[in-house]
Nucleic acid binder design. Structure first.
Lengths: 103, 103
DNA sequence: TTTAAATATTCCTTTACAGGAATATTCTTT
DNA sequence: AAAGAATATTCCTGTAAAGGAATATTTAAA
C-alpha cells in the first residue's frame, strides 16, 4: 500500500491506466527526470502493481491487474459498511453502558 | 492515501472495521502505546478515514465511510482493466510500430 | 566496432515522519 | 476543590526514503 502513497507513483499508476508506457514517455508526461521515474517504477514493480515488458531498447511498463485486484478485495471487507445501513455507534454505546452497569 | 500506508494505521482501520473503539481499546488490541495511537488517529482523522465522537471522558473513533468510499471510487476507474479482457500491450506495440514507420 | 539512445544504478544530501518520554488537557469522581 | 482517568500534545532523536547528479548497462544504429 505504501507504494501508491507517494504522489508521483500515484500519478504513474493513473497515467498507466490509459495504457502502457515506456519510461521516457512517463518522464515526459509527468515532467519528472528519468532516473526518478526508474526508481519509482522499481518500487511499483516490487509491489506487484506494475509489470515490465522489455522491448528492444526500451522497457514498456503496464499495470499489473493482480495487484490492483488485491486492493479491491481488501476494500471488499469494508463494503458492508455503506451497503448495510447499520449504525455501529449506537450499538457500541449500548454495549458500553451494559459494561459500566456490570461493574 | 499515505494515511493507510503506515502499517499501524492500517491495523487501526482494520480493527475499526469490526466496530467503534476508544483510544485505550485500540492501544490495547494493537499493543501500542497510547500517545502513538492518538497521533495515528489524528492523521486518520485529517485524512477523513476516521471520525471522533467525544463521549464524556473518552473519545470513540469509528470509520468514516465517506473516505473509504472515495478510495473505492478511485478504484472504479481501474475496474475495466480486469472486466474487459482487452490486451493493452498488443495495442501499444502496434501503435509503436506505426509511429516508427512514420519517422 | 564505435557511437548514440534508453534505462538502471549508485552515491550523496536533505527532509519527513514514526517512536519514546514527558507533559498538558479535559472530564469524572470523591 | 482535589485526585485520578482518558486522551492529546510537545520535544527530541533516529531512520527511511525521495530527489539530484553522475555513472553504468544494454541495445540499436551507423
Amino acid at each position: 500500500m505504501s507504494a501508491i502513497a507517494e504522489p508521483n507513483r500515484l500519478s504513474i499508476i493513473e497515467l498507466l491506466r490509459d495504457g502502457p508506457c515506456t519510461v521516457g514517455e512517463i518522464a515526459e508526461h509527468l515532467r519528472l527526470r528519468q532516473p526518478q521515474v526508474s526508481k519509482h517504477l522499481r518500487v511499483l514493480c516490487e509491489a506487484k502493481l506494475v509489470e515490465v515488458h522489455p522491448m528492444a531498447n526500451r522497457r514498456i511498463y503496464k499495470l499489473h491487474v493482480q495487484g490492483l485486484k488485491e486492493i479491491d478485495s481488501w476494500l471488499d471487507s469494508f463494503r458492508h459498511l455503506w451497503e448495510d445501513r447499520l449504525d455501529q455507534l449506537d450499538d457500541y454505546l449500548k454495549e458500553l453502558q451494559r459494561k459500566e452497569k456490570g461493574e
